[in-house]
Design a protein around this nucleic acid. Structure first.
Lengths: 223, 223
DNA sequence: GATTGCAAGAATGTCAGACAATCCGCTTGA
DNA sequence: TCAAGCGGATTGTCTGACATTCTTGCAATC
């Protein structure tokens, strides 16, 4: 009999990829806050069946990236400033801790990675590409979180940041925000590079406070 | 025309209830860590169809209460001590903060509720009902978290506690653990009642450290 | 006797189609 | 003008199906 040469070019769309696609669409602001997501539309757009789509939606619901109201279906939650404040406060707890731990335990190799991502942000900051700014800034933080020695801290933080991704583009576009952000991040980097745990905490806290203020400004002006 | 007397005794099982049932089953330790969950079995046990069940499983997966490995299906994750430690560390961050905030903002009415739940725990502690102990202790903490003024803090904390629910029963059954736990919780209560933020943080931290140590002991002895 | 390979069975991943229940907006009638 | 009611749209859920993948037990081989 002939050998099976079925190379299987397309390994059939896995559900996980569907979730990622949707998540990305939400991050990139493709849907307006408060707008409803119609299952049948999404099915055709994503090329999957309703049962599969609904599984993906349940995942996103548990991550709080969408809301599902019984008999009304999924929608993009509109973030109130109250909730955003609460998220920033918890982020502060987590990030400050992560930066502090990172300062005393990061490896030279990872430190270089951190430096690289800082340079990447520097380049993005001098441009006007706010998407690139957000992405590279997120890189910077995820390296810190990945090296804090606590995977749960990292995981929880990622979940929270995802929920306010909506803001980040807008606040980064505020006049001069990218540049001051860069200065704050450099301070964080220097503290970590020096292994100064206390300074790293302080710098991280400072950065987050400024970011929060910028987010509030961008939100107020958007009303 | 006659009024609509359709009393609808059974409002058709809603998916949310299915998730709750499963969650409860996991909490109560009905499944062994590492054991696989067979979809068809769960379907018949819960009386729902596979699509609905799979939605529920996706929710639980996102909450990290189960794992779903592609082509292998859902299973109960076995918690390593490393992960448990990480969870306890983040819990500490959150709980200490919550206790501190709670001390300076809780209302007299809620304070009475806290007192009540402490009494409930006291009664449970003098019995040997470790399930009641765990439940009442959880009540105590959820009141603190609910009054810290930050719903996100509360939400994240609940998610973390859920993931280590497996431990809590066992560590509470350790000799004398319930009694010392009671003493620690009384101290937390006193600090909050006195509005002493600093003391509340300290007491809360102390309690969590002890709880973590107890959990480690129970885990070591269980190997 | 132990190990490897294979084949049957079990379980998952995904789909199509269907139908009742519910919600929303619009028309119609008071 | 405003309220009641009626359709259309959408969700919640089910059944049944089928390909793919994993598991397990058995047989053949070393």
């Amino acid at each position: 009999m002939p050998p099976d040469l079925n190379l299987r070019i397309s390994p059939r769309t896995v559900q996980r990829e569907t979730v990622d696609k949707l998540r990305l669409a939400i991050f990139s602001g493709l849907f307006q806050p408060g707008s409803r997501l119609i299952e049948s539309q999404l099915c055709t757009q994503l090329g999957i069946s309703r049962p599969s789509l609904r599984e993906a939606l349940r995942s996103l619901e548990a991550e709080r990236l969408i809301e599902i109201v019984p008999n009304r279906g999924p929608s993009i939650p509109s973030l109130t400033w109250e909730v955003a404040t609460a998220i920033y406060e918890v982020r502060e707890l987590l990030e400050v801790e992560a930066a502090g731990r990172c300062a005393s335990r990061i490896s030279p190799e990872q430190l270089r990675e951190l430096d690289k991502s800082l340079s990447a942000f520097e380049e993005a900051a001098s441009s006007n590409d706010s998407l690139a700014q957000v992405m590279t800034a997120a890189d910077f933080y995820s390296i810190i979180l990945a090296n804090c020695g606590n995977p749960i801290l990292e995981e929880v933080h990622r979940g929270l940041v995802a929920r306010i991704s909506f803001f980040r583009g807008r606040s980064m576009s505020l006049d001069g925000r990218a540049q001051s952000s860069l200065a704050e991040m450099k301070e964080i980097y220097e503290s970590i590079a020096a292994g100064d745990e206390k300074a790293a905490r302080k710098a991280s806290k400072n950065h987050l406070l400024k970011a929060k203020a910028a987010a509030k400004m961008s939100m107020d002006s958007a009303t």
